[in-house]
């Protein structure tokens, strides 16, 4: 059962498609990351999930209901921060959260203090939000979003403007919200490193198009470690690999590069065999393909991005 699902979701503005044909499937309880460079359409996607922007075509289904036909039932059960958290900044943090609860139709006064504590903003009683630092506003925004105990939390670039310590705190918080409170989180970011650490599923978007939706377990489990050989006689090397070493799992790169993905054979044995068969070796290295490389490949491979 998917908590949020889109089918052929498209938004065009003045004839130009800024989001085109997105099919996303967010599972209940997971942290779902939307990854893409600036201007990829991440924010527009999230605005569509929160009814701020109406899709040109396609459907959004949340909690099994169509967003266009039952918006208020759905909005009651979710919270969001789009772009950056906004407040009535002459009011105090508590006032802002109380107003939020009133509009959401949520009446549990204790929840406000609990969520302020959760983001470590418990002692901000009398200060108007105007006087808060950016980091404090980010945390207050999250406190507000989680006060009503939403089932779905939509966060657009939530770590923007945070220092490294703040980023780590946020990451831990998101993890807790997902695992302890059972919330489903949709987070967007253009920073791969962040997504990699926190998301269960990543949807890569670029220029409004969905490049790939991939479960992190899947790519973490992929054979991304390999031995790279550089040789001037590639044919001979391939022959040795196939016939003498029985290693079929390799790929050729460029004129002289071979990547071997079978790592059962020790590197020393490999080089010994190659030298024994007179294969000239310029270099031999054990390497690891990073996720970053993988995603760059995805985005690069789409032909949309340099």
């Amino acid at each position: 059962m998917h908590l949020l699902q889109t089918s052929r979701l498209t938004k065009s503005v003045r004839g130009r498609e800024i989001v085109s044909g997105i099919n996303m499937q967010v599972k209940t309880g997971e942290i779902y990351g939307i990854l893409g460079p600036n201007g990829a359409g991440k924010t527009t996607l999230m605005r569509m999930f929160t009814t701020l922007v109406k899709p040109t075509s396609g459907e959004i289904e949340i909690f099994g209901q169509n967003l266009a036909s039952a918006p208020y039932d759905i909005l009651k059960r979710m919270s969001s921060i789009i772009e950056f958290p906004v407040f009535y900044d002459k009011l105090t943090a508590i006032d802002n959260l109380e107003l939020h609860c009133e509009y959401m139709g949520f009446y549990n006064k204790k929840a406000i203090h609990e969520s302020l504590e959760l983001v470590q903003l418990a002692d901000v009683d009398t200060k108007p939000v105007r006087e808060f630092s950016l980091g404090m506003k980010q945390r207050l925004g999250i406190a507000r979003a989680i006060t009503t105990r939403p089932e779905l939390l939509i966060l657009d670039e939530p770590i923007n403007g945070l220092d490294p310590v703040g980023i780590r705190e946020m990451r831990n918080l998101f993890y807790r919200l997902s695992k302890e409170y059972g919330m489903t989180l949709i987070i967007s970011s253009h920073i791969l490193g962040e997504m990699e650490q926190i998301a269960d599923t990543i949807c890569v978007v670029d220029k409004g198009k969905q490049i790939r939706e991939v479960a992190m377990d899947e790519i973490r489990g992929m054979d991304t470690e390999y031995i790279e050989i550089q040789t001037s006689d590639r044919l001979k090397a391939v022959f040795v690999l196939e016939h003498h070493l029985k290693l079929p799992n390799f790929k050729l790169y460029g004129e002289s590069m071979i990547r071997i993905y079978d790592l059962e054979i020790p590197q020393s044995e490999l080089s010994r065999q190659l030298i024994m068969h007179d294969v000239p070796i310029e270099s031999i290295n054990r390497k690891k393909q990073s996720l970053e490389e993988y995603f760059m490949q995805l985005i690069g491979g789409s032909g949309l991005h340099a």
Binding site: L52, E83, V86, Y103, M104, G105
Partner: peptide, 11 residues
């Protein structure tokens, strides 16, 4: 002030 982002995501 973009607080309308907030207002219009309420049920």
């Amino acid at each position: 002030n973009k607080t309308i982002y907030l207002m219009f995501t309420y049920p």
